Computed example of a mutant assay.
Amino acid sequence: MIKKILLGILIGLFVVAGAFVTYILLSWDKIYDVPYPDLQVTADSTVIARGKYLVHGPAHCSNCHVSSFADMVSADQGKVTPLKGGAPFPLGPLGTMYIPNLTPDSNTGTGRYTDGQLFRMMRHVVKPDGTAALSVLMPFWNMADEDLVAVVSYLRSMEPVENQVKKSEWSFMGKAIRVFASSFHPVENPTPPSYAPPMAATVERGEYLARYVANCVGCHTRRDPMTFEALSPEYSGGFEFEPFPEFHKYIGEDPELWARSPNITPHPNSALSKFKTVEEWKARFRQGRIIKISPMHWGPFSRMTDQDLEALYIYLNSLEPVENDVTETVFKK
């Protein structure tokens, strides 16, 4: 009798496990029916110039959408580097993403897609094929309409470069996380303004940049390494970045080094508190990259306007101080 009960339990477990696996395999690349934003690109040179500033500055698209380690370094240094994509973006046990080609090439780049598909990607985190991307990497859902138009208009104006990018590779764990974690689901009800706060040293401009353009809140918040859900107060640091051995070796650094984001709330022991004046803050950004393996996009941020750097400083200093000693920002486990 006991053997029959145990056998029944075992069979039940196999059935449940099989159903779970089947559900994951059928659902991980779900297609979402999300409408296209009612926005239009333009050939206006002023708008395109605004888009160029965002792409190569605070939105730092130019640091990620490259094809090689050499391009990563060049882009960070401010050299003109085609945004043709292809570079790997490892996500540990979840798999590896490959960065898309943003040039308007009609075979391998954004030239294959409509303006609506590109706007939807930025506004709702839904790719042209209808599947969802990782929202924490694309925090542009509440980017102002005028800035979204500027970015896409600039991308449309670039020289097309043919470069076939590999499809992202997801482990079973990665597929399961894509099914259940909200960070891999569309942003369905964004609340973007029509116009961005003016480029001036204000709290409003600083918050807009920190949340929806530069993504300071994404990296300077401790997150679950699997789901990327926040585990600590915003901007209090502690997000750990796994080593990228191949890239570390390329730049001559220890392939076992981890990085940890610092606390940038105005607590007396935070990284922000080291900058007693806005001039000191701006001077640090103008220096650019010092720590080679830092995940911070120092190159693009070093080229931000004085007004935008000042706005970030004012906004971060307006936050509630959070005590969180993240200890070393570069370390080994």
Rank of each mutant, 00 (worst) to 15 (best):
W281R: 02
Y313T: 04
V330W: 10
S236T: 02
G85Q: 02
G288K: 13
M173D: 02
L6H: 12
L316S: 05
P186F: 07
V152R: 01
D325C: 07
L7K: 14
I5A: 11
M122S: 12
R156T: 04
P139A: 07
S270E: 10
Y235M: 07
V21G: 00
D306A: 09
I290E: 14
Y36F: 15
R211T: 05
P128H: 15
V151Q: 01
V126N: 10
T329D: 09
A75E: 04
E162V: 02
D115I: 05
P37G: 01
S62K: 15
N107P: 01
H185V: 09
V151Y: 06
S294K: 01
V217L: 14
L25E: 14
P255I: 12
S318G: 03
F285W: 14
Y154F: 15
A201W: 10
R123V: 09
L137C: 10
T191Y: 06
L26V: 09
R284D: 05
R284K: 11
L309T: 05
M304T: 07
K292Q: 13
I9C: 14
N269H: 15
A311F: 14
I177H: 02
I177K: 07
H56E: 15
T221G: 08
L6Y: 15
S45G: 06
D147I: 03
S182W: 08
I11Y: 12
D71E: 08
S27F: 07
Q117M: 01
V217K: 13
R123Y: 11
L231I: 06
K52H: 10
D29K: 14
A230F: 09
F140C: 02
M296F: 04
I31M: 10
T114Q: 00
P197V: 02
G51A: 05
I99L: 13
E323S: 08
E188D: 10
V322A: 04
K249D: 07
K332L: 10
E246P: 00
L118H: 01
L10P: 03
L316D: 05
S27W: 09
S273N: 12
Y32C: 03
H185M: 12
G111N: 06
R260K: 10
L272E: 09
A70L: 12
I314V: 13
P93G: 12
R260T: 03
D254R: 02
G109N: 05
